[in-house]
Computed example of a mutant assay.
Amino acid sequence: MVTAVTNRKLCRGDFLEQIEVLCRGGVDWIILREKDMTESEYEELAGKVLDICSKYDTECMLHHFVQAAKHLGCDRIHLSLPDARATDPEVRQSFRVLGISVHSAEKAVEAERLGAAYVTAGHVYETSCKPGLAPRGTKFLREVCGSVKIPVHAIGGITEQNMAETFACGAAGVCLMSAMMNMTEEEIANLNRR
């Protein structure tokens, strides 16, 4: 399973056109993670992204902004662990799919207890998104995968070259950000064949 995590600032071309490229290329999920936006800006962008995703039957997870997701009728949300803890349990349970970002096996167990349908675990490899921060590595990924019954998606420094290694650790999927913001449809399709 391949998930594209967005960062429109890394996109060299038109962001919404790149969303369409991701969908046509066959990514399984898109996590719309635009952390610098206000909730109203995010909601406006999310509406457009959800429209594109629905044309291609691509699952789109909204990120952080619970109320925006509710307003747009989106039943999929991805939260940080602190956000998930702070969100009312009834609200968390109202989403069909809840994803939570974790950075340890212990936190993965907590995320599962909070109702996560899946977790993203990272960062596994060195990545330009986290300069100066040592990667947690494959041992960490194995520990997270072994600690929960829900799917674990590896994130952080994932490339074509190391994808197989993450799956060998027990990951159900991989998340890519930087590369996905400029990949072609053909490159994405090739990635999905791995």
Rank of each mutant, 00 (worst) to 15 (best):
V2A: 09
V2E: 15
T3S: 13
T6E: 14
T6G: 13
R8F: 07
K9I: 01
K9M: 07
G13C: 05
E17H: 06
V21I: 14
V21S: 11
V21W: 09
L22N: 13
G25H: 06
G26R: 04
D28G: 14
I30F: 08
I31S: 03
L32S: 02
L32V: 06
R33E: 04
T38C: 02
T38A: 07
E39R: 01
S40A: 15
Y42D: 00
Y42I: 00
E43L: 11
E43M: 12
E43S: 14
E44A: 15
L45P: 09
A46N: 11
A46I: 04
V49M: 04
D51Y: 11
D51G: 10
I52F: 06
S54V: 09
K55C: 03
K55W: 08
Y56W: 09
T58P: 15
E59V: 15
C60P: 08
C60E: 01
M61R: 10
L62T: 10
V66Q: 01
Q67Y: 12
A68C: 03
A69T: 09
H71E: 09
H71V: 14
G73E: 14
D75K: 00
L81K: 08
D83K: 08
A84S: 05
A84R: 03
A86M: 05
R92M: 07
Q93A: 15
S94T: 01
S94C: 05
L98I: 10
S101C: 03
H103I: 07
S104Q: 06
V109P: 09
E110Y: 08
E112S: 05
R113N: 11
R113K: 09
L114D: 11
L114K: 12
A117R: 11
A117W: 05
H123R: 02
V124N: 04
V124W: 00
V124T: 09
E126G: 15
S128W: 13
C129I: 12
C129M: 10
C129K: 05
G132Y: 11
L133T: 08
P135H: 02
G137W: 04
T138A: 00
T138W: 01
K139F: 04
F140L: 08
L141G: 03
L141Y: 03
E143D: 15
C145V: 00
S147C: 01
P151S: 13
P151M: 10
A154R: 10
A154E: 06
G157M: 03
I158Q: 06
Q161P: 15
N162V: 14
N162F: 13
A164N: 08
E165P: 09
A168T: 06
G173T: 04
V174Q: 09
C175A: 06
A179G: 05
M180H: 07
N182C: 02
M183L: 15
T184H: 11
E185P: 00
E186Y: 07
E186K: 09
E187C: 00
E187A: 12
N190Q: 10
N190I: 01
R193Q: 12
R194I: 12
